[in-house]
Design a protein around this nucleic acid. Structure first.
Lengths: 238, 238
DNA sequence: ATTCATTTGTGATTTGCATCACGGGCACAA
DNA sequence: TTGTGCCCGTGATGCAAATCACAAATGAAT
């Protein structure tokens, strides 16, 4: 079995903890078997690329470990990051089902392990398993939902500080909260944050410093503490 | 059968030319029958609203005639238009399959006729008809694709003129072209264009005047002629 | 410890465009 | 006709943020 980049195949997707968790949990036994048969697993180092925007879709990647940056770039090198994928997510799904090209580029930002399913195998599997197809539709709906959220941060803000505040709040949504405070492990560089909210690296640096001065956030090493979600929300609804 | 707004039911989806064309053409006969049984058709005047962002999803609307504006707004009234839907498209699909709230607001901008399918009926139908579910997944994939395009125009541009140029080119993509020229029936106000590209009404007015001066476009009544797609592309890749 | 690369912090400058303000055109109704 | 809305056009103004240009810090590698 060939894999992109000729990286070594680790195992055939048995022990991977996240496996098809989100997408294909609770499928009937034969379906799970069929899925396992067409799945191959590989490890990717930091900096590797799963697929590139514009490439014809080869198939889907189910992320088991690590984190992946999904982005799109313009001709002059400007980059917009759509989202950072966490383990359990399925990458390349829209392009694979529609048969178009990947609309985004997927770069590994933390060493990752992923299960790959080739497009034809995947489509055949979906045709055989109607409930899996429905599951895929739901997954796509959620992906769409996230894209819309991202659009809102970028498109509905009046100022860069509003965008950053929106971003921090969305980013923190997945983290546990205790009395208005949230601790976030911020693994993104200012540059990357800028690319997520559509602004420049310098303004992100300045705004974060500003937020710190205003006691809105606190920085301890690489963890960010939102000291007052309420105040951040005030900025958003300024 | 109750319909939103208590508008009169015109017919039970027989003569509607676009029917489930895009989404459910070529389904086996019994599936088509089952679909017809759960579908109800209604007409909506200009200005009516099919659904509002934040409402729990009631079901999907298949647009037969007319045009619909899909948008999202912030608390302070700023609006971002995601896209203008044409006949044949299915509205509310992501929210309906995921069971979340509608993420956008759907306003009728040209008198419309649409077929409505309630969420439960629709999901049951998909469970019974695996191939239809796959079709839905594909439709969702394309919707996602369009959202990404929109993100690119807004997020990857350095200037408003770049955004407008991108917008015009995307908008013209669906129109027939002859030797670099494209005629577009521009049914949007400057305000609406501004809301699509994330800028202000005045800038759109000014930029269009500017484009006219530079012979990039020509305006005849409500039709816009792109005199030079190549030059517009040059602006995009400035 | 010393290099080297990446990331972060900050000042100075400049400009694009949002915003405000207003006038004029056009449609449609009373 | 005269209103009443809704678009479109355009000038003046101010500010937020991109951009440029370094310097300081961090951290990885040898």
């Amino acid at each position: 079995m060939r894999t992109p980049y000729g990286l070594e195949i680790i195992e055939n997707c048995v022990a991977c903890p996240h496996r098809e968790e989100r997408l294909f949990c609770n499928l009937p036994e034969p379906a799970v078997k069929a899925l396992a048969a067409i799945t191959s697993s590989a490890a990717y180092p930091k900096g590797a690329t799963l697929f590139v925007e514009g490439q014809p879709a080869r198939g889907v990647f189910i992320l088991c470990n690590g984190r992946v940056k999904l982005s799109t770039s313009s001709a002059d090198g400007k980059t917009l990051i759509l989202r950072i994928s966490e383990p359990g997510e399925v990458l390349g799904l829209p392009a694979t089902v529609t048969g178009k090209s990947y609309e985004l580029t997927a770069d590994i930002i933390e060493p990752a392990q992923a299960n790959f399913i080739a497009r034809n195998d995947f489509l055949n599997f979906l045709r055989e398993n109607g409930d899996a197809a429905l599951r895929v539709a739901q997954q796509l709906g959620e992906t769409y939902h996230l894209a819309i959220s991202e659009m809102r941060t970028i498109g509905l803000s009046h100022s860069a500080s509003e965008k950053l505040a929106r971003f921090l709040l969305e980013w923190s949504a997945s983290c546990p909260e205790e009395k208005g405070q949230v601790r976030i492990k911020m693994t993104l560089t200012h540059e990357e944050i800028a690319q997520m909210i559509g602004s420049s690296r310098e303004t992100v640096t300045r705004l974060l410093a500003d937020f710190r001065r205003k006691q809105l956030v606190q920085v301890v090493g690489s963890t960010l503490i939102l000291r007052s979600k309420a105040d951040l929300e005030a900025i958003v609804n300024r």
